[in-house]
Amino acid sequence: MDASTAIQALSGSDIPKRREAAEACAKNTGLTQAAIVPLCRCCQDEDEQVREWSNAALEESGPPAVDELPALVDLTKAPESTAYWAVTLLGRLQSDGAAALPALVTLIEAPKTPTEVLNRALWAIGQIGEGDQSVRSALEHAAQSENPRTSRLAVSALAKLG
C-alpha cells in the first residue's frame, strides 16, 4: 500500500479499508510517518481494530516529521485518544517541538483537559526541555496536584527545564 492510498483509506468511511490501512501502517514505519495525522484521528475510531492498529503504528513510529507540528498542535484539541497521541508525538520531537509549548501549556491549564492528556502534556514539555516563565508557572501549579502521576511528571519536567 502506498502512502496516498493509506491516507485516503484512513480518512474515509469504509471500515474494512481503514482497518487494512491501519494494519499496513503498523507493519511499515515509513507509511506511518506519512499518515501520522490520520492515524492520530483513527486512535479514536468507532471500530476497535482500526483503533488498535493505529495505536500500534504510533507506538513504534518514533518522532514525526517536524513539518507535521502545526497539524499535531491542532489535534491537541481533539477527543481524548487523538489528543493523547498528538501530544505524545509532539513530545517525541524533543527540542524541535518548542513551537508546541503554548498549546501544551493551554492543555495543562484548562480545567477540562482529560487527566491522561494533561499528564502526557507534562511529559512532552519535559521532553522538549525548554520553556519561558509561563511554562514554568504552569508546571509549578501542576506540581501541586494531588494526582501523584501529575505531580511527579510536573516536577520531572521542571527539572529538565534547568
Binding site: 479514536q44 483503533r51 485518544s81 493523547y84 497521541w85
Partner: peptide
Amino acid sequence: PRLGRTVS
C-alpha cells in the same frame, strides 16, 4: 485485566 491509558 484490560489495561491502558486511552480507549486502547
